[in-house]
């Protein structure tokens, strides 16, 4: 059963400056026995008491200002950050699409990058080899797949990354916005494929600033504000509340 359940999950980042991150300071501080409050590591509360229940079939959009905690929430759901307090239980195979460039090696061919990225997403080499043709067709990269990735334009890289993630049938798909650098025709194709994928995936959480894109993929929405869930409900209701002027 695919589901996400968090209970009062918080994510606090310690912000080490050069002073607090140094072993010398810690040791000397202990020896001196005089650690003032100014020396304490400042903490950024990226997420605060987030309680969520998402079940199979949910297609949730994440909205909120920059720094509201959207990306951190996605990373919490991906299992990258374990909550500093509270719990987060994620059942199902997760495929995160945050930064399309991470895990891509510019010196090796597009084909090899497809395999490696698939391995990172928990697939086996054999499973990825079966999917290469499909990905090649979708990305329309043709002969470029045997060229080193450094010869690719940004848009071509995005195509490749999208091609991989949409080929692997994840149960939980976590998308962070950043799918902007492709041409309009391909974007349309990608949307169709993403919609198809979302139909097959058990659960989608999608952070975006584009209402149009959100409406196409999501049915409900979560509005994040200062690390808290400000509203969670039907997409249109949440968007309306989010856009309404009194909160700006």
């Amino acid at each position: 059963m695919v589901s996400i359940a968090t209970r009062d999950a918080s994510v606090d980042f310690p912000i080490f400056n050069a002073k607090t991150r140094s072993l010398k300071k810690t040791v000397l501080g202990m020896v001196g026995g005089n650690i003032s409050s100014e020396d304490r590591v400042p903490v950024i509360q990226a997420l605060h008491d987030v309680t969520l229940d998402l079940d199979h079939g949910a297609r949730v959009g994440l909205v909120g200002h920059n720094g509201a905690g959207k990306s951190t929430l996605l990373r919490l759901l991906a299992g990258i950050y374990e909550p500093t307090s509270g719990t987060a239980v994620v059942s199902g195979r997760v495929a995160p699409v945050f930064d399309l460039g991470v895990g891509m090696d510019p010196e090796i061919s597009g084909y090899e990058n497809i395999i490696i990225r698939g391995l990172f997403l928990g697939m086996s080499r054999k499973q990825m080899e079966e999917r290469v043709d499909d990905i090649a067709e979708f990305t329309e990269l043709g002969d470029f797949l045997s060229m080193p990735l450094r010869t690719y334009s940004t848009g071509m890289r995005v195509r490749l990354a999208l091609g991989v993630v949409t080929s692997i049938d994840p149960e939980i798909l976590l998308l962070d916005e950043g799918i902007g650098a492709v041409d309009a025709a391909f974007l349309e194709k990608a949307r169709t494929r993403l919609s198809d994928l979302v139909d097959r995936a058990g659960l989608l959480v999608f952070a975006s600033h584009s209402d149009e894109f959100l409406r196409q993929l999501c049915t409900s929405a979560i509005w994040m504000n200062h690390g808290r869930v400000k509203a969670h409900g039907h997409l249109d209701d949440v968007l309306r509340a989010y856009k309404s002027p009194e909160v700006a």
Binding site: I80, V94, F98, D99, G103
Partner: peptide
Amino acid sequence: VGLITHLPA
């Protein structure tokens, strides 16, 4: 750092 903060492994 890139891999750790972007992919769950």
